[in-house]
Write a protein that binds this DNA or RNA. Structure first.
Lengths: 204, 204
DNA sequence: CGAGGTTGATAACATCGTTATCACAACGTA
DNA sequence: TACGTTGTGATAACGATGTTATCAACCTCG
């Protein structure tokens, strides 16, 4: 059971999907996770789903439509991972759990994470609706921050601004870790821990 | 005049380039900056340089060879931007200048930055030598940090670990800014300033 | 039962990175 | 000078990609 609150502006295109549509999405997701972004081709998706390529166009309008679904679903699951720990009486501990959930999602879904944050699919740009939905992930974080602020545990500040600060820190460390910069010389989990601790301490 | 120190492990492939080779590289760089990563095609580069496509293969071994040159040159220029301010008697101010130079480079060379940090060119993976060279950018930062540590202005810690911390912070903010997350609601330059200040304060 | 509309499989098209072909120029040697 | 050799580079071809067109089969409904 998760504690993710309902999200606004969930793109309507994600609502109804017939059997073929969901099979295609699952095939695309599996293909992405198993063989990387380069394997995410229209023919490859359709073959893995056991249907013809036309279904990708009739149901999703093309490859970018499939990728947009993966994009939105990725942010939905990211929000879930950040909210998977129930709110406790310690808002600071809740924030830490949020940060750990963020890293857990990124490390456990590397290729999906790169679809969401790198531009690994050529010419794909998320639609305005998808971008707005992705932005609501920030609101989840802002809400937790505001709770800590009203509890007097964090300095009062614009929650959205603060959320951007925290998000950028988490994303920065995870992003460099996934790019394998100096993989042997740097203990990235420790860097992640230090960075998040330093930001939280700076906000108290 | 810049104050960039000499860098180790500069890939040898960058050394000698004839006229056609450098023309190709300039054309590729211009194409990337002007029309984005999707316009970076072998035929497009050759046409812009006024030569045939074969030159890309005879001189660079293919498209990835050209991209690797852009990749390495990007990190060289990033290091230059971080070192463009001469060392003063205030190591903390030097660190701030370093961070401002980082952001200035990223904002001023957005598509190049995404070649360096996002995987916008399909199937391109930097060679081990190029990755090592990219990692030396971290050493430039570590050197400045160590100077501040020995001056007693920063807590003593592993300079490389600390450099990774600072780099990840800068990269995280810049990266989210370039992805235009909540572009209207967030003052990204202010977030960048807060994030770097908070990290520096946490290290003192 | 049959006409109309929809669906989807097949094939074609433009473009991509890459490779093969091959004409032509430059060089060394008799 | 004349000829064989070598290598460079422009052109064309190949496989794969996203996309679109074609068209036969099927379902719906009167």
């Amino acid at each position: 059971m998760t504690f993710a609150t309902s999200r606004p502006h969930y793109p309507a295109a994600m609502a109804q999907l017939d059997s073929v549509g969901s099979t295609l999405l699952r095939a695309a997701s599996d293909l992405l996770a198993a063989e990387g972004p380069a394997a995410l081709t229209v023919r490859g998706i359709a073959n893995a789903a056991g249907v013809s390529t036309m279904n990708v166009y009739s149901r999703f309008g093309g490859k970018d439509g499939v990728v947009e679904h993966l994009f939105v679903e990725g942010f939905r699951r990211l929000g879930e991972a950040m909210s998977s720990t129930p709110p406790s009486d310690d808002p600071i501990a809740d924030l830490r759990a949020c940060g750990l959930g963020y890293r857990r999602f990124a490390i456990g879904n590397q290729t999906l994470y790169s679809v969401m944050f790198d531009r690994v699919v050529p010419d794909f740009r998320p639609s305005p609706e998808a971008q707005v939905f992705a932005g609501t992930t920030l609101d989840l974080l802002a809400k937790r921050l505001q709770r800590a602020m009203t509890a007097g545990l964090l300095k009062s500040a614009d929650p959205l601004h603060t959320a951007a600060l925290v998000w950028a820190t988490c994303h920065g460390v995870v992003s460099l870790e996934l790019k394998q910069v100096k993989p042997s010389a740097i203990d990235w989990p420790a860097v992640y821990d230090d960075a998040t601790s330093m930001i939280i301490k700076g906000l108290t």
